[in-house]
């Protein structure tokens, strides 16, 4: 049974096609990740799925309710964690949760009890009486998530919930996402961190420039890279110039720069590496480190788009 079914969803802003006809299905009780770089259209997709934006074309069903025609039913079954920290900074965590709980129709003792539970879940019971504005980035993110959980939604969207926080807070958020799944919730999770998508997802889809360029389980996606090897190299020279030459070397399928390192997909590293060293020597640069890795989602993205998931 599918919790979310998206059919040919489209949205343009002026001439820019932010979401350009995507279709996918999310099964009930799974974590589904939408992985894509900045501007891929993840937030726009979620905005349509939460009835904030009206699609230009296509439709989607959330637990069987059309986002176009049954927006009230869709909203009632959803929890939405926005990409921005959409909270009241001058109110305490408790007051914020209490308010959002009331927006979802909770009140009285049930609300109080649920706020207690959620505070516990996001680990902020101790600090519940401090204004959210005084919290660290990670704590704010956790309240941002908590505010979407009060009514125990069956389906929850999380839009890049770990952006800009310390590793410890990120760990705790990832753990709580898994905990939500264990409680039977369906999670649609967007991110541009490949590691997160890899760790969390049952299924995932890769999005770029408004389109889904691949979707499936992690295994299925990695098979797309087939027998290719992934090589990361550091050099002590002009990366861009070397990149241009290496793209023309036989056996090199894709080459790009990520965080100052050269990242290559090659057919066979045994044959490719000597050629790379040769070419480097000819160009007068030294290769200072080499790492041969298993293909991962990063490699899939590179393979399909010729670009790195994260630029710089």
């Amino acid at each position: 049974m599918n919790a979310i079914e998206i059919e040919n969803l489209q949205k343009s802003f002026g001439t820019r096609r932010a979401v350009d006809g995507i279709s996918l299905a999310v099964r009930q009780g799974e974590i589904f990740s939408l992985l894509g770089p900045n501007g891929a259209g993840k937030t726009t997709t979620l905005a349509m799925l939460s009835t904030l934006l009206r699609p230009d074309g296509g439709d989607a069903r959330i637990l069987g309710h059309s986002i176009k025609h049954e927006s009230a039913a869709v909203k009632a079954s959803l929890g939405v964690v926005p990409q921005d920290i959409a909270l009241y900074m001058d109110l305490t965590a408790r007051e914020n949760l209490d308010f959002w709980g009331r927006m979802y129709g909770l009140r009285g003792g049930a609300l109080r009890q649920r706020v207690d539970e959620v505070l516990e879940m996001i680990g902020l019971t101790e600090r519940q009486k401090d204004p959210v504005g005084k919290y660290s980035g990670g704590m704010k993110r956790r309240v941002n998530i908590g505010a979407a959980l009060l009514h125990k939604p069956k389906v929850i969207y999380m839009d890049e919930p770990t952006v800009g926080i310390d590793p410890q807070s990120r760990r705790s958020i990832l753990d709580s996402v898994v905990a939500l799944k264990e409680q039977g919730m369906t999670v649609l999770y967007t991110t541009h961190y490949m590691e997160e998508a890899q760790e969390l997802s049952d299924h995932l889809a890769i999005m770029d420039s408004g389109r889904l360029i691949a979707s499936g389980t992690q295994q299925e996606l990695i098979q797309l890279v087939g027998g290719l090897d992934r090589i990361r190299l550091a050099i002590n020279g002009d990366v861009e110039r070397v990149l241009a030459t290496w793209r023309t070397i036989t056996g090199v399928k894709q080459a790009t720069v990520e965080e100052g390192l050269l990242m290559l997909l090659v057919e066979d590293s045994n044959q490719a590496l000597p050629r790379l060293f040769e070419s480097a020597a000819a160009a007068g640069v030294r290769i200072t480190s080499v790492e041969i890795q298993e293909p991962n989602l990063e490699a899939v993205f590179l393979h399909l788009t010729g670009r790195a998931l994260r630029d710089g």
Binding site: S50, T51, L52, A72, K75, A76, L78, V80, P82, D84, I85, A86, L87, Y88, M89, W100, M103, Y104, G105, A147
Partner: peptide
């Protein structure tokens, strides 16, 4: 302020 923090938009994702 509510519009700027997008809390107002978040309100629209709830049944309000």
């Amino acid at each position: 302020e509510e519009r700027k923090t997008r809390a107002m938009q978040r309100l629209l994702t709830t049944p309000a």
